[in-house]
Design a protein around this nucleic acid. Structure first.
Length: 606
RNA sequence: GGUUCCGUAGCUCAGCUGGAUAGAGCAACAGCCUUCUAAGCUGUGGGUCCCAGGUUCGAAUCCUGGCGGAAUCACCA
């Protein structure tokens, strides 16, 4: 039993004895003692003063005495106002260290879905959708946040015992890809990634820009010549009409159009693969909108027959959600073609049929909050059992100093470029510090990659997903302070110490903890490490990798303070030296596992 | 206009289900490398936690109302 539970039980019992009243277990609030007070755990006694009819100090004193008597791991206490600060025995902390220092999986939970004793519900997987790119443009900084967040959340859920299925939903059809196709057909002269030595997604993205540029010219001319509004001009522009016609031909399965479409998407996927691989993300399954929208269309038609939806005179199909304050929502156009919502209805069903998940998490920007409210309601209206299983993990936008990224203003931060820059900065900084002697060229390249990507990933993941975040391209991402490289550096530093310890030292050290009394810094660090499994659980529960990121930073900071003040290997007292070695060992595991849960690698040297 | 989210130091961000004197980093300034990696450590300055009420023994945290910002309310995705 955890000591916190033990204390809570004694407190509840004690209050029952004194007052005859049952206390609400949630009012027994144990927190770690603040640094400026003596003690390890603090109980807030204010909630109990009323029923015990005594002053806060008296209540704290009473509970303190009882706890001291009944719980052997408590060796003392002090009372400050309504706070009871308890001091745990060195033995408690040393037991913890001895138990976990050799545990490579410290912080991870056992796999619940493989546990035969678990309920069938707990064994069901969680599906996490992220990335979800369009095939007309390369990935940018916004996608980076999405991918890193989705991947880290998947790792967190896996790390806490869930079976996770990572899925990508590629939006490979629609007017946007037709625009790229049209521009390529009209102006491309057969250009291919091979002929131009461009990444496939970049090539297709460039034609999207060509389309928009040429369209702009036509629109401007139309507005000037005919004096019509921009909106009308966009509709009338020949290029726009051709793009529409291309879409219709695509939906009609015109072989010529399908061939171009297939070819261009293939180029894009090859490009995306390179980017995903570099980013370090991967998927268990990829859905394509071109393969799911038909199912969505069927489900909507069924819903219409069943009376869940209604048809307008022009033949379009709508859901009436006005009773939920959500207005009406189009589900099928008059010409029978589908919209985004139609497609999402289809994929939800497909996903449910494929995996029977207990939860379906969608990592999608907060600009789509409304879309998911509607989706859940529509599925609910259809009586779909999985409507309640849908969870929109809504995250904030990445903004630039001048606001959102706008392709028209050329302020989009390209994912590949950004990763290149980060790695280049990592190389430059590392070379300046000159600590890589003895590393092969390949090792060095790998190190630059690990540091550059670590800096980028940590920068993104340390921010609470819900919040918008700012990225300033003018200032490169920092490598000092609360950053990925700082944490990686701390890891490398500890590895260096562990390498220098004579072989077999660690094993021998487990036996020699008896009689050690950790000093202030050591205990701070131990207490911090003790929190790790709880932090991981909370982070998984809240789907917030930021919790882990900020925690790991605290660990690294506290280790560096300890490292600065005390010697590990040069400590003359063998017992203390062994203890510090184990402390370092557990710290390195915590950093490595914590970073791994974020999808960030840590180097052994840097 | 309706709905949702956000507002904490000059800047970027923490602050867990309400708990003690609100914390880091960056930037600025001042120190610390013949000792296990100085991408480190220490110190100084820096706050009306947007504002006003309310609930509470106790509010940055919860409620109400303002103010400011963002998103959304598409036959775009």
């Amino acid at each position: 039993m955890k000591i916190e539970e033990n204390i809570a039980a004694v407190v509840a019992e004690s209050i029952l004895q004194e007052s005859g009243q049952q206390v609400d277990p949630t009012t027994i609030l144990l927190q770690k003692t603040r640094k400026e007070f003596a003690g390890d755990l603090t109980l807030v006694v204010f909630p109990f003063v009323k029923c015990l009819k005594r002053s806060p100090e008296q209540v704290a004193e009473l509970l303190g005495q009882t706890l001291l008597r009944q719980i052997p791991q408590i060796e003392g206490y002090n009372v400050v106002k309504g706070f009871l600060n308890m001091v745990l025995t060195p033995g408690f902390w040393l037991d913890f260290l001895g138990r976990e220092a050799g545990n490579e999986r410290f912080g991870y939970a056992s796999a619940k879905h493989e546990d035969p004793g678990r309920s069938s519900q707990a064994k069901k997987p969680v599906v996490v959708e992220f990335s979800s790119p369009n095939t007309n443009k390369p990935l940018h900084l916004g996608h980076i946040r999405n991918n890193l967040l989705g991947y880290a959340v998947s790792l967190l859920l896996e790390g806490t015992g869930n079976q996770v299925v990572k899925v990508n939903l590629v939006n490979d059809r629609g007017i946007h890809i037709c625009k790229s196709m049209l521009a390529w057909i009209r102006f491309g002269q057969g250009e291919t990634p091979e002929s131009s030595e461009k990444k496939g997604d970049k090539l297709v993205g460039d034609y999207y820009v060509v389309f928009e540029t040429k369209l702009r010219q036509q629109v401007d001319a139309l507005m000037k010549d005919k004096g019509i509004s921009e909106e009308e001009a966009r509709k009338e522009a020949p290029l726009m009409q051709e793009a529409r016609s291309l879409l219709r031909r695509w939906e009609a399965r015109d072989p010529e159009v399908l061939a171009v479409w297939k070819q261009m998407n293939e180029w894009v996927y090859q490009g995306f693969d390179v980017t995903y691989k570099r980013m370090g993300v991967a998927f268990d399954k990829t859905y394509y909108e071109s393969e799911t929208y038909l199912l969505g269309r069927e489900i909507v038609s069924e819903g219409l027959r069943a009376g869940a939806f209604y048809e307008k005179e022009d033949g379009s199909v709508w859901a009436d959600l006005s009773e939920y304050e959500l207005n009406e929502k189009l589900l099928l156009r008059a010409d029978g073609t589908s919209v985004y919502m139609t497609q999402d209805i289809g994929t939800a069903q497909l996903r449910y049929d494929d995996f029977l998940p207990r939860k379906m998490i969608y990592v999608v920007g907060n600009e789509q909050n409304h879309h998911f409210d509607v989706l859940k309601k529509v599925l609910d209206t259809l009586g779909k059992p999985y409507a309640a299983a849908i969870h929109h993990l809504s995250y904030g936008m990445v903004e630039l100093p001048q606001g959102r990224m706008k392709s028209r203003e050329g302020t989009v931060v390209d994912a590949d470029d950004l990763m290149d820059e980060m790695v280049a900065t990592a190389r430059k900084t590392t070379e300046e510090l000159g600590k890589t002697q003895g590393l092969s060229e390949a090792d060095k390249q790998e190190l630059y990659r690990v540091i550059g990507l670590g800096a980028l990933k940590y920068f993104i993941l340390k921010v609470d997903p819900q919040k918008n975040m700012l990225f300033n391209p003018e200032e490169s991402i920092d490598f000092n302070g609360n950053t990925g490289p700082f944490i990686q550096y701390t890891h490398a530093r500890i590895c260096s110490v562990l390498r220098k310890a004579s072989p077999g030292r660690l094993k021998h050290a487990y036996g020699s903890l008896e009689g050690i009394s950790p000093n202030g810094k050591e205990k701070e660090l131990l207490k911090r490490l003790h929190e790790f499994p709880g932090v991981v659980l909370e982070a998984a529960h809240e789907l917030s990798p930021a919790r882990v990121a900020n925690y790991v930073y605290e660990v690294a900071r506290e280790f560096n303070q300890f490292y600065h003040d005390y010697s590990i290997l040069n400590e003359p007292d063998q017992g203390i030296s062994d203890f510090r070695l184990l402390l370092s060992q557990l710290t390195v595991t915590t950093i490595r596992n914590g970073m791994a849960l974020l999808g960030i690698d840590v180097p052994e040297r840097m």
